[in-house]
Design a protein around this nucleic acid. Structure first.
Length: 353
DNA sequence: AAACCGGGGCT
DNA sequence: AGCCCAGGTTT
């Protein structure tokens, strides 16, 4: 017996449902810059960059980054030949920087060995998991692989009124629904439906081509599917940071590890906000490490990242390592906020514009 | 199972 | 103006 409940649709229903969604897609599907060329035969480089970008970034926001990234690296050879710092600079502000580092590493493999030709080949690239491998093998090779992303999960959960769809449940139903005649278009169609009509909060059921088959619509509570996931509470983090130099030419450090790895930023030192003297102690420790002299406070900025709420207490300092050009370095939003604060502090009233 | 990041929607 | 949410891959 199967591990999941197979699709309740009869073959005739399946044919109608597929035709309804694909007909909608042919007329209402989104015209996106990475969807050039024939369906199922999209350009692999453009599709790949787009899919990695769209792993954690919504289309509306992703368009800007996609444009910038392709202008900077028009081909996989250009991407492979670039230093990592330039790749991160092109990705700057987009978040989840491991995506850019993996894309860069994978490009060096692709530039010499060529693009993967199937699902397993795509899956072998760093930064390409089951979703992206299914998307790329279907979009560029018309392979019959059903994608399983957040949109698909939501569409299928509503279609079958399933509050707690497991990954295996979603994959099973996605496989059953996939139109084997047009796998690439089918995947694009389901994701477009989830992104434009079957949205998380305010679904547009009256316009939905799948409404005749949708159990959640029958029950009248589409937003109940799937049930929201529990999330860990945000954690308060405090750190001191120093500005040595100016907001456009400052001492920067390269961040290592999973958090903002590979990006540059102002030197920082965390501290326990409750403990007396902890903040001045952290400033002293940081300046000792940098061989710098602490100066006046410039203010503080807050930024939320993952499950952390970070407060950066910014100070001026002197001495230490050589400052560098801030504009050519890849920085996180947090550091841009800190530098903006320093700039406002430097010229609070006057100055050009 | 938990961590990674930033923006957009809703209150 | 804030809070809350969503989201593939990796470790």
């Amino acid at each position: 017996m199967p591990a999941f409940t197979p699709t309740p649709f009869t073959p005739a229903q399946l044919t109608e449902l597929r035709a309804a969604l694909l007909n909608w897609f042919d007329r209402q599907g989104r015209d996106l810059p990475w969807r050039q060329g024939q369906e199922g035969r999209r350009d692999p480089y453009r599709a790949w960059v787009a899919e990695v970008l769209l792993q954690q970034t919504q289309v509306a926001r992703g368009l800007t980054y996609y444009q910038r990234f392709l202008d900077t690296f028009p081909t996989v050879q250009a991407l492979a030949a670039a230093p990592e710092s330039e790749v991160l600079k092109a990705w700057e502000g987009c978040g989840y920087y491991a995506r850019a580092r993996n894309l860069h590493r994978a490009a060096q493999h692709v530039a010499t060995h060529g693009f993967p030709q199937d699902f397993v080949g795509w899956l072998a690239l760093p930064g390409v998991g089951p979703y992206t491998a299914a998307a790329l093998s279907s979009l560029t090779g018309n392979e019959a692989r059903a994608v399983n992303d957040g949109n698909v999960r939501r569409v299928l959960a509503r279609l079958h009124a399933q509050t707690h769809p497991t990954p295996a449940w979603v994959q099973g139903h996605a496989d059953a629904l996939l139109d084997p005649a047009r796998p690439g278009a089918w995947n694009e169609a389901v994701m477009d439906l989830g992104a434009t009509l079957c949205t998380p909060r305010t679904p547009q059921c009256p316009a939905c081509p799948l409404r005749p088959w949708c159990q959640a619509h029958v029950l009248g509570t589409p937003t109940a599917y799937p049930a929201p996931k529990a999330r860990p509470a945000a954690q308060e983090v405090h750190a001191v940071a120093v500005l040595i130099g100016t907001p456009v030419c400052a001492v920067l450090e390269r961040r290592a590890g999973p958090l903002l790895g590979g990006l540059m930023g102002l030197p920082t030192q965390p501290f326990e906000p409750g403990a007396p003297g902890a903040q001045t102690g952290a400033l002293a420790d940081l300046c000792t490490r940098l061989h710098a002299t602490p100066g006046p406070a410039l203010g503080q900025v807050t930024h939320t990242m993952t499950h952390r709420r970070i407060t950066l207490h910014l100070y001026r300092a002197d001495g230490g390592p050589d400052p560098q050009d801030v504009r050519t370095a890849a920085l996180s939003r947090l550091d841009h906020k800190a530098l903006h604060l320093a700039q406002a502090h430097a010229a609070p009233l006057f100055g050009p514009e």
